[in-house]
Amino acid sequence: MARLILFLLVAPLFAEAQLLEVKQTIYGMDCAPCARGVEASLKRLDGVQAVTISLNNGTAEIRLAPDNRQRLGEIRQRISDNGFSAKEAQVKLSGVLREKEGKLIIEVESGEVYALQQFADAKNVLEQLRKSKAGKHITVAGVVAEAKSTPDAPWNIQVTQLFD
């Protein structure tokens, strides 16, 4: 019974808390078999609905299922396993906005945490979010840097767009 109550309390925090889209920049990928290997590896990931590879732009565009539990870290690991370097990524994700240790974060169902950063041209966006959206479900798009500061640190995402 206690577990059920705990689940009912916690579940809303993760309701529809997922990565939705990832446009991952890839360095070093030069040829069709390279693209094919990356595409096949990404398609095998749970929750991946579609993958589009561009050799000329050096990107992998990944569309994920609404109920997926996929991690950006795993997507980047697959690219690394193919012998290429995953650089910054444009991502779209949704989840409940929370404040933790002074940072606005979104934790997705996979357990990955994204710390929202102020986009250079968007003054006061985070402050407005803190006031109006804390505790609410939001969908944002932004740019995630190539690496974390430490393995346990959240992914820093520079928010570029807020969806209603």
Binding site: T25, I26, Y27, G28, M29, L55, G58
Partner: peptide, 13 residues
């Protein structure tokens, strides 16, 4: 053993 790799740009290695 590919012991050195520098993916220095899009499409370049």
């Amino acid at each position: 053993w590919r012991f050195h790799r520098d993916d220095y740009d899009i499409g370049n290695r």
